[in-house]
Design a protein around this nucleic acid. Structure first.
Lengths: 143, 143
DNA sequence: GTAAAAGTGGGGAAAAGTGGGGTAAAATCT
DNA sequence: AGATTTTACCCCACTTTTCCCCACTTTTAC
């Protein structure tokens, strides 16, 4: 079970230190994939297999599913942790998640999410805007 | 069953002593999570796992569920009590609960609530403000 | 009043995070 | 094909954070 939120940086060689708390569960390697929302996911090998099997089983007759399958596997990468517990994040995934320097890494049960700090902040703000208490208040005072 | 209210401090190393009365029930470790009302919750491992299992079963295809899962697990932490019966409160949770120095820890049946003393005081006053008897009194003074 | 337990503070070793050099492999160009 | 550039990967070094342990103060129990 992946839990907690951490901040890290990606270096000039496009490496990111996987938070130490997550390393034992990954066992030296992991699958890095494109996530829903503009972030990346890290799965254990086992959990990736489960997810991959579900996705591979989608009906190929559906064009939307074909596109999704292509996108999922085309943006999945097997990553081995180096001696310092870091993984390299490839260009296509960096671009998707708008990753430049500062990152937020957060445990989400069976996966780890990697966010660009900026994107995460925007996302959280958007979430706050959607929060009913906030919008109710806004409704009270807006003219 | 967790009962009673205690005051404590968080130190410069972000450690808080769990009231001794609660320690036996926790058994050396506990789950620290984001609570309602800008406070934190401590659950026993067992109770947390029950909740976690329910939440983990929610479908990833729903954006609102993804947000909730991220928020819940990203703001949960497994805390082991040190030799002095203290836990470390991570930054994201300190920020959420506005924790700086003085704390109020209160047993609430199946969980323990951790409040910033200041936030708790504000919250208690807010409750009073909502009480019609209190606001009626204020009204006598044209407030 | 005394002893034990609980609460609080801090030093120091170890671990984690971060940056960078050097070499080998791969890709690209002529 | 050979030469040159780029990329990947292993290793080392430094800084920051974490965690274990000890010590002191305060509270509780008898």
């Amino acid at each position: 079970m992946f839990l907690g939120t951490y901040t890290n940086k990606i270096d000039d060689k496009n490496r990111m230190a996987v938070p130490a708390k997550f390393r034992d569960q990954l066992g030296g390697k992991c699958m890095l994939t494109k996530g829903f929302d503009e972030c990346l996911y890290i799965y254990t090998m086992e959990d990736f297999e489960v997810m991959a099997a579900k996705i591979a089983a989608l009906p190929q007759s559906d064009a939307d599913f074909r596109e999704f399958i292509r996108d999922f596997f085309g943006n999945s990468e097997l990553c081995e942790l180096d001696g310092q517990g870091r993984i390299k994040i490839p260009q296509n995934l960096r671009e998707y998640a708008h990753i430049t320097k500062d990152l937020v890494t957060t445990g989400a049960m069976n996966k780890v999410e990697i966010w660009s700090a900026e994107t995460k902040a925007d996302f959280d703000l958007a979430k706050k805007m959607k929060d009913s208490r906030f919008t109710d208040k806004l409704r009270e005072f807006s003219i």
